[in-house]
Design a protein around this nucleic acid. Structure first.
Lengths: 140, 140
DNA sequence: CGGAATCCTTTCAGATACTG
DNA sequence: CAGTATCTGAAAGGATTCCG
């Protein structure tokens, strides 16, 4: 028998509930990668929710051309943005948030707010843990 | 000059805002990993927010002993749960959510709700994209 | 300008074996 | 029972080069 809990499938066994990895996980893992949210955020605050490639690259400290391309392709594939290609010389490409794309960040706000609130506690917990386990500097 | 936007630091340049990777990112990336949320969820629905190692292992389909240990250590380090060790033979270890740990999932609910709502659109966007780019089956 | 292709290094995760 | 240690293959991320 399969039930649903917090939107996740699980089966009830004689030992208790048993959870399965579920589909929406990969949206969350995408948001957890290094550049995705920064990219979305930059587009979200841009006029018209639209920027050209070099503007995005310029707006994110440390991102390489390759990683930006990869990130943009993922976002395009999932329908969070659309790519507008202008075959001029030199070529120009603009990326524009879709409606779904712009609705994502506000939905995430609640959680990022929680993180900001609790961040000091987390850092303190890490320091305590690292001391007790005699780790040398910033273990993972 | 450094400002804050959606809780993120950025500097204002003559070319526009420039975002930096920020600290809270690593909480999000932890939640995006394969087992963390499942582990938290299982503890959250357990009586007393408390389970022993083998019970958790049993409750998550496909997790290995090693990955559960790693996941639990991370969560412990960040202060989301505490480890109770009973030096019996055979040994017994129980993991218990902290208050911070139990407050995390509800905070995430808004976003997981958004994901569930939009999941069909995302899947459709992927199909369309993959067709247009003549990809064979489930590109990344 | 905006990539794609390639190479390389680091990290991650699964499998397996051993231990207090 | 609840780990740790070790190995391996896979994946992520950066650097560099080339191209329409």
């Amino acid at each position: 028998m399969v039930n649903t809990l917090h939107g996740r499938n699980y089966e009830q066994t004689e030992l208790g509930p048993r959870l399965k990895p579920c589909a929406p996980h990969d949206v969350l893992s995408r948001m957890g990668d290094k550049w995705t949210i920064l990219t979305l955020l930059l587009l979200a605050i841009a006029p018209g929710h639209r920027l050209r490639f070099s503007a995005i690259k310029n707006g994110i400290e440390g991102i390489t051309q390759r990683m930006l391309t990869v990130t943009l392709r993922h976002l395009e594939r999932d329908g969070f943005l659309v790519r507008h290609y202008f075959p001029e010389v030199p070529p120009r490409v603009e990326y524009e948030l879709t409606d779904m794309g712009s609705s994502l960040l506000p939905a995430l706000e609640g959680f990022t707010g929680w993180i900001r609130e609790h961040w000091p506690l987390i850092e303190e917990a890490r320091r305590t843990f690292d001391e007790e386990h005699h780790r040398r500097a910033g273990g993972k």
